[in-house]
Measured scan of single mutants.
Amino acid sequence: MEVRTIKVFTTVDNINLHTQVVDMSMTYGQQFGPTYLDGADVTKIKPHNSHEGKTFYVLPNDDTLRVEAFEYYHTTDPSFLGRYMSALNHTKKWKYPQVNGLTSIKWADNNCYLATALLTLQQIELKFNPPALQDAYYRARAGEAANFCALILAYCNKTVGELGDVRETMSYLFQHANLDSCKRVLNVVCKTCGQQQTTLKGVEAVMYMGTLSYEQFKKGVQIPCTCGKQATKYLVQQESPFVMMSAPPAQYELKHGTFTCASEYTGNYQCGHYKHITSKETLYCIDGALLTKSSEYKGPITDVFYKENSYTTTIK
Rank of each mutant, 00 (worst) to 15 (best):
T19G: 13
S79G: 13
V243C: 03
T91D: 03
L179A: 01
M207W: 09
M209H: 15
D38A: 09
L37C: 11
G257H: 08
V166F: 07
I105C: 02
Q197V: 10
Y113F: 08
E52C: 10
Y137N: 02
T116K: 03
Y265M: 00
P34V: 15
L81I: 15
D63W: 06
L186I: 15
T302R: 05
Y73H: 06
E264S: 09
T159W: 08
E296H: 15
A205V: 01
S240M: 00
Y57D: 06
T169R: 08
N111G: 06
V189L: 06
Y306A: 04
T258W: 01
F32A: 09
F70S: 09
Y306V: 02
K275S: 08
C112S: 05
G194K: 07
H74L: 14
S240F: 00
Q123H: 08
M170L: 12
C190H: 01
K229G: 15
T232D: 03
Y284V: 13
A40P: 09
E168K: 15
K218N: 00
V99A: 09
A117H: 01
T120D: 03
G299N: 02
Q30M: 10
A40S: 13
P60L: 04
E52T: 11
E68D: 01
Y155E: 01
Y137C: 06
Y214N: 00
K92I: 10
A154M: 03
Y274P: 00
T103W: 10
T192L: 09
V12Q: 04
A146Y: 01
R139T: 09
M26I: 13
Y72F: 11
Y208A: 11
T169F: 08
F217V: 10
T43W: 04
G164E: 00
L186C: 11
L186R: 06
E71L: 07
C182L: 05
M24R: 12
P60A: 11
G220I: 02
G82L: 14
A117R: 04
D38R: 09
T35V: 13
Y57S: 07
N49S: 13
L186P: 02
F32S: 09
F148S: 04
K183N: 05
L102N: 00
K183S: 08
Q222L: 12
A40E: 14
K255H: 10
D109Y: 02
V8I: 13
A262P: 00
D135R: 08
L65N: 09
H18I: 03
D109H: 10
D62Y: 05
T116F: 02
Q30F: 04
V188G: 11
Q197W: 05
S294N: 10
K191Q: 12
H256E: 09
L163G: 14
L59N: 13
L102A: 08
G143D: 02
T312K: 07
S246Q: 05
K95V: 14
A247L: 00
C149H: 02
T76G: 13
K183Y: 07
K95Y: 00
L151H: 01
K44W: 13
L119V: 12
R83D: 05
Y155P: 01
R184N: 02
F305N: 03
E264F: 08
V3P: 14
M245T: 05
T64E: 13
D165I: 04
V188M: 08
C190E: 05
T43N: 07
V221L: 13
L121M: 09
F217R: 02
N309Y: 12
S246M: 02
L126P: 04
G288I: 00
A250K: 12
D165A: 10
Y72I: 05
C156L: 06
K92D: 02
Y73D: 04
P78C: 09
A145S: 05
D38G: 08
N178R: 11
G272R: 00
G161K: 07
D109F: 03
N110G: 04
L235T: 03
D38C: 10
Q222P: 11
T260A: 12
D135W: 08
I6R: 05
V58P: 04
L119N: 04
Y274T: 01
N61T: 13
Y234C: 04
K275G: 01
A87S: 07
E204T: 07
P130M: 01
